[in-house]
Design a protein around this nucleic acid. Structure first.
Lengths: 220, 220, 220, 220
DNA sequence: AATGAATGAGGCTTCATTCAT
DNA sequence: GATGAATGAAGCCTCATTCAT
């Protein structure tokens, strides 16, 4: 008879709490989500939550961390499929948009809650932004090294890219009638590539690379 | 005899509350600022505050509104001094950076608190972002109309510009040792102008327009 | 028309809270008394309590302080009526017993709660014990100086006196059927005077000093 | 083959829990010690504790009981070595001080925790005090019977003795820099013997009885 | 207009105890 | 016998808002 592994069960409960917290935070924001709400959503008791996590804050932090990790991993996986430096940057852009398009909740948590969680998380927020900017900067540096784009200040450019992406996603999140996030890709791509000095000829090639596989859905 | 106009006095009390709230919000964020804090800073009582404002939220909203108004007015004033479309866009950019550089508190309120204030203010935040993006879009449209830049999607471009600006300022606000915000202007300018398709030749002219008056601080 | 002085009203409310807390602590002990209990007993709201006091602990501390002050004041008043050193010591003893006999609650708070309040108040407890021991020591020192008793270690003797008093009161408090606290005076007096080396002849004079006024009731 | 007797093993686990609880209570007090703390210190689980004991309270009660038993046994052993009634009383006093001096933890539990444990243990505390007072009273009664001291109210005297001892130990426990508890013996002895009417001549003999063996520490 | 005392709904966290495995 | 996950009742404190004066 298939006994239930208690360790497994515990992990799953933990996961359930995390999931519940995730959507609760996404729906109402960090401050407006009570631990009771999370408990109710996870079908546990408040005490149960405090068995698995030391504090509400800890839950949030873990959520941020793993969410960011997942996103980064996905971007890196997508980028790895490309050879050409500019294509890598494009892949990164595309993946972020596609991911958020498919996981609106994830976007809410990462973009709105993080900022809205208050001063206590500024360091966290900072690190997250830095991380993504670094990621982008890496691809831009490669592109410069490969001669695909002229030498330029990849530091500020990556910040611009990140800020732009941030704003695009935020608008989509806050819009009354969202529309498709992925539809913004072609236009955003053009503007950002241009900002990085990618030759117009290369830009014109469009996102047509890789055939129709451009907007590969999320695996999750 | 020079009587104090009661209406005038009331207005000044109102103003004092607004000022106190402004710095309190900037210092501790919306959620972490108690009405008591504001009252203390304004040298009034809690009751006094509720005489002038219906709620804490209303204070915040008004603050956002007037702060944004001030910033927009200042940008428009600076832009009005320029003739050439691209120069106008540059002026807008420059003014925003210069203003925030001189009014870190203003930046905090507009960039950090707004986000941190919770879902209740999303509409407000939205409108604010929209407003600035529109402002930028207007200048870009002019530039397109004047043939200074090629026809392009000024909608997305303005969003990119705003997002970039947003991110640059946010980073500056959250940095451990801030550094000069205005120093980022030349690099940011180059990237953004490029993103809008401004010819390299025009970009190379630098921010040298208007001689040394480029970075004139605000009077406020 | 007799307007109500708001300051007066506030003070009275504060007092009401203090009184409520006093009996609540005496009845259930510090730890087992919830702030809600105090609020209910004081016919206020929890918030009302926190308007007047920063914390439950602060209430307790203030209570200890003022209660001890009252007792000390009363002892000193009684002692001041006596001239002879030994009579002073007797008066102190008598007053403490008489006071507690008339204010069982006071005794509970000072003797049981203080100890039971937990480690957080040890310093407080310490100081209180020290204070009373010092008081006693003062009278003993006077007696030695006056030659009423032989030179002796008044330090340890005062500790013994205090400890004895403490125990007598504690027993009375914890007894199933209390009996009269004041009835223990003659016997206790004899033992303690003996411990201080008071001559048997003087001891035999009994507590008859001051005629029947020996057990003056409390004023409070 | 030397199997481990399960009953024996269980007893040892029980013992381990008791020991752990003992030091935990001594360190943080009854209320501030969580069952989890005890479990951790005993290297068991919470469930394990509840297998051996019905409640936290029961552990405490048992601890008090056995600790008091040990102390009493030790006192009686020491007293049995003496013949002379006054010497017996002295031995009791000496032993208590010596024991606590060597087992500060024991003192903490018996003197501080008991009081701090709340109303639930008042009966326990009462009984403990009574028990010790009875012990002392017994020796005093013997002394009276033997004519070593004049007839006196041994009831109140024993209470005084106990209270004095209590206070001395409590002070030592709560002092910032403890000093030696045993050093207080000579002075305390003198005061207490005097309080019981022991002739000055006998008191002057000092604690010199039994040669240097006076303060032999306990083996535990 | 202003004051400041009062309210009370909630928020986060702790912890003795239970119980399925 | 033992484990550790789960429960849920309290507990202390905060704070936006109201209101008598």
């Amino acid at each position: 008879m298939p006994r239930i592994d208690p360790a497994e069960q515990s992990r799953s409960r933990r996961e359930r709490i995390l999931d519940a917290a995730f959507s609760a935070f996404a729906k109402r924001g960090y401050r407006d989500t009570a631990v009771d709400d999370i408990a109710a959503a996870a079908e546990t008791s408040k005490g149960g939550i405090y068995f698995h996590f030391p504090s509400k804050e800890a839950i949030f932090r873990e959520l941020m961390q793993t969410t960011a990790d997942k996103l980064v991993a996905r971007v890196e996986r997508a980028v790895a499929l490309e050879q050409e430096p500019v294509a890598k940057a494009e892949a990164a852009l595309r993946t972020v948009l596609a991911t958020f398009a498919g996981h609106r909740t994830m976007a809410r948590v990462l973009f709105l809650d993080m900022a809205g969680a208050g001063r206590a998380f500024q360091a966290e927020t900072n690190r997250l932004h830095e991380r993504f900017a670094e990621l982008i900067k890496g691809y831009l540096d490669e592109a410069v090294a490969a001669g695909a784009i002229p030498p330029l200040d990849t530091g500020i450019t990556s910040v611009v890219w990140f800020g732009a992406l941030n704003e695009v996603v935020a608008r989509w999140l806050l819009a009354d009638k969202p529309g498709s996030l992925e539809e913004t890709y072609p236009a955003l791509r053009k503007v950002l590539l241009r900002s990085a000095g990618v030759p117009e000829a290369r830009i014109a090639q469009g996102g047509a690379a890789h055939g129709g596989a451009t907007m590969v859905g999320a695996t999750r």
